[in-house]
Design a protein around this nucleic acid. Structure first.
Lengths: 249, 249
DNA sequence: TAAATCCATGCAAATATAGGCATGAAAATT
DNA sequence: AATTTTCATGCCTATATTTGCATGGATTTA
């Protein structure tokens, strides 16, 4: 595993969990503690995270601010959300996943667009509430405090009873060979259910996540109908995804 | 648990409650009193809070201005929520309704209280998410932008499949003769479902709402097991409720 | 004033860190 | 092609930090 790759994974984990333990990372990535420590130290000096005794925490991590203003790569996420928006036609019934990119999509949905939108994410639901023409439906279930989404058997069952035109989902990691993967097992189960209950699945992912993988698999790359990144569709980084039957936007 | 995390949690608690006890924090975070004491001492020296004998207090009482936009009768609602809190025992399975009074109750639930809490209110769910020992479950359904709660057939159906020890509900209007009434038909349907799925129903209402009624009826006053207002239980305003089989707190 | 509670201090065990060093792989140089 | 240099990584050791516990003194409460 390359150093860059490793550091990226560390950053991803910090973004996702707001905090990490060096020991956990070392075990997960199968490298020595020392290596992880050096990586984290380096990332700290680059101001990508904050190193603390025994681990690291996300820069924007202050439990105090309920609105976890995660501005990380917001520009890219905005571009992705813009593109995704073009797929949504009036009258559509869609599902929007959790995560900052999907929240950005929710934020951008225009006030005059009449759609029905399912979600299992509290932040997404909050964003959509201000839009009078969006019919918001929350998928019930146990709430994961980390992701601020509903998960578990109940959420999955509820998802099994719907079928939406489009689902917009995010992922922790994506690779043309290994497909969509995650660090968290429960999240994977929910995402599977989401994909199952969608006619078309749209993946929103910043290019940073391309060609990365992790422990648990959500689905093959073929299960995705459209993939949206902030890159130009002709970008070389997307080459490996071209042979699959995916619409790249 | 990382030291930084712990200190952040402590700060968060102080912000939230304006005042904390070292013993409570120690129990909630499962560390020794000494550790908490050292943390608080450190935070004090960083001017993040003020350490006092046995606990700590928030620096400024006017800090929380960003949240709590609706400060209408907040004092009264706080008193009510305090009283309601005394009914919640560890291990309870409860339901918390929407509305500012119920949100205040959610806000006051201590970090170390282990309960399972159903709700159909987004603000309540958000409040509870910061509490590690509360198992939060959202009742799915269509989201009403006005009340920020889930309503409709799906929400009602979901409610029909649970049975909680206590439900804490608010109401638009309450009268000893006409019972609990609302302006909104859909809200009434959900509240009916909530009451049906509770072993005990607790009504939280500021005294201002006493002896008022409106168009649609949620239930008779007898359907309520406990009524909580900010008033002293012996207050004359409560006289008309006394002949009913209600516990007045 | 007496009892209970809280606090400061020192100590010890567990854990984390920094820095030196060895190794081997990759890159650059000859 | 052979050599040197650079770099990443793991291991080791001395040092530092964190944390729980014990003790005696201080403070609060009844």
């Amino acid at each position: 595993m390359l150093k860059e790759e490793r550091q990226q994974t560390i950053l991803n984990e910090v973004e996702l969990h707001n905090r990490i333990l060096l020991t956990d990372i070392a075990e997960a990535l199968d490298v020595s503690i020392d290596t992880v420590r050096r990586d984290v130290k380096e990332l700290d000096s680059e101001n990508k995270l904050r190193k603390v005794h025994g681990g690291a925490i996300s820069l924007g991590f202050t439990v105090n601010s309920t609105r976890n203003q995660n501005v990380y790569k917001l520009e890219e996420k905005n571009i992705i959300a813009q593109k995704a928006l073009s797929l949504i036609k009036p009258g559509s019934v869609i599902f929007i996943d959790g995560g900052t990119t999907c929240s950005e999509l929710a934020r951008l949905i225009p006030h005059n667009l009449e759609i029905t939108c399912f979600t299992h994410s509290l932040p997404v639901a909050s964003e959509l509430l201000s839009k009078p023409n969006v019919n918001v439906i929350i998928v019930g279930g146990q709430v994961s405090s980390e992701s601020q989404t509903t998960i578990g058997a109940n959420a999955i069952h509820n998802l099994s009873e719907i079928r939406v035109d489009f689902s917009f989902i995010g992922t922790g990691y994506v690779d043309s060979f290994y497909g969509l993967t995650e660090f968290d097992w429960d999240i994977v189960q929910v995402k599977k259910a989401v994909i199952k209950s969608s006619k078309k699945t749209v993946l929103l992912s910043i290019s940073e996540k391309l060609n990365s993988q992790h422990r648990y698999k959500t689905c093959d790359i073929n299960a995705i109908n459209t993939m949206i990144t902030e890159l130009n569709p002709t970008d070389a980084l997307l080459n490996s995804f071209r042979n699959h039957d995916i619409h790249i936007l």
